[in-house]
């Protein structure tokens, strides 16, 4: 590849008048290099190689959780306990405010909080994935997707602790099991699959622009209120576009629905399918172009 320098001589020569074009030159060089077909292969190879290092990222994830609760007696079950307290408090209060029956509302809130915890964890920790792994990235060659899988795995473990809160609530209030409950498995897998692209995309952007994690944190907070977690979709009169256009709602519903014994509607699957395909396509483009730049950014 020949450098796109109009003049003879070295393209990087330190010359004041050329300083300006230098940045432009590098930006073009990056994109040109990135769009090359081999880079898509490298991006896909990275994702595959990262997945194969399952022993490493699962161990890292386990240790991370272990570290958070080291020397505490009930350990990671503090997660479940604090969620339980929140569900109970908020559930009782809002059931009163909204005039809902507790039998119905408490399991709804418990399921909503549990799944939302997973989604927001994937988004928030995903956006910090590469920033937090800075030292490793600069010392250790290897697939970058490793750090995303670690985040997804860690959040899945947290979810596995939190789900007990829902199970206890569901047993107390007699949530009906049905065939629809089985949809929780594909729903959860699909959600985790989306977690991988979310982490990759947000992680890359955040590594380059350090304000982005802050922006994401506030957007996620807003999304919590915009998404039916403490309120129910049927409480909305009109303005249903707020639901339809909210990707968090669809991602939430394909797991919460089955937990409450209702298989998600076909439109719901379709929406999540579109989010998955669209998100992954966008991420693959980004990851192909900027994967090799990440080590320079962190």
């Amino acid at each position: 590849m020949k450098p796109a320098s109009p003049q003879q001589g070295h393209p990087y020569a330190e010359h004041p008048s050329r300083r300006q074009t230098q940045r432009g030159f590098w930006a073009m060089q990056q994109i040109r290099q990135g769009l090359h077909a081999t880079n898509l292969h490298k991006a896909l190879a990275d994702l595959g190689a990262g997945l194969r290092q399952v022993e490493l990222w699962s161990t890292m994830g386990m240790q991370e959780i272990g570290d958070r609760y080291r020397r505490s007696i009930i350990g990671p079950f503090w997660l479940s306990l604090s969620l339980g307290v929140m569900v109970l408090g908020l559930g009782l209060l809002y059931a009163g405010i909204f005039g809902q029956s507790i039998d119905d509302y408490l399991p709804y809130v418990a399921a909503g909080f549990t799944v939302w915890g997973l989604i927001s964890g994937l988004v928030l920790e995903g956006s910090r994935s590469f920033i937090d792994a800075e030292r490793l990235i600069r010392q250790l060659p290897g697939p970058l997707s490793l750090h995303i899988y670690r985040v997804v795995w860690t959040n899945f473990i947290v979810f596995a602790h939190n789900i007990w809160v829902f199970i206890v609530v569901a047993l107390i209030f007699g949530v009906q099991l049905s065939w629809g409950t089985l949809a929780v498995i594909p729903g959860l897998l699909l959600l985790l699959l989306n977690g991988v692209w979310i982490g990759l995309l947000l992680g890359l952007i955040s590594a380059r622009f350090r304000d982005v994690p802050q922006i994401i944190a506030s957007v996620t907070q807003l999304a919590f209120f915009m998404t039916p977690i403490i309120w129910k979709p049927d409480m909305l009169s009109g303005r249903t576009f707020v639901l339809g256009a909210n990707p968090f709602y669809h991602l939430l519903e394909i797991v919460r629905g089955p937990l409450l014994g209702q298989a998600p509607a076909p439109e719901q699957w379709l929406a999540v399918g579109l989010i998955t395909v669209g998100g992954w396509s966008l991420t693959l483009v980004f990851f192909s172009v900027y994967r090799w730049r990440l080590a320079y950014w962190v």
Binding site: Q53, E55, L56, T59, M60, Q63, G66, D67, R70, R135, L136, Q139, L140
Partner: peptide, 20 residues
């Protein structure tokens, strides 16, 4: 010392460092 975890035991770190 890359990737070693001060909170984990020596044996755990042997395993972790090996995985790295």
């Amino acid at each position: 010392g890359l990737g070693m975890n001060p909170e984990a035991t020596g044996y755990d770190n042997i395993l972790l460092r090996g995985l790295y």
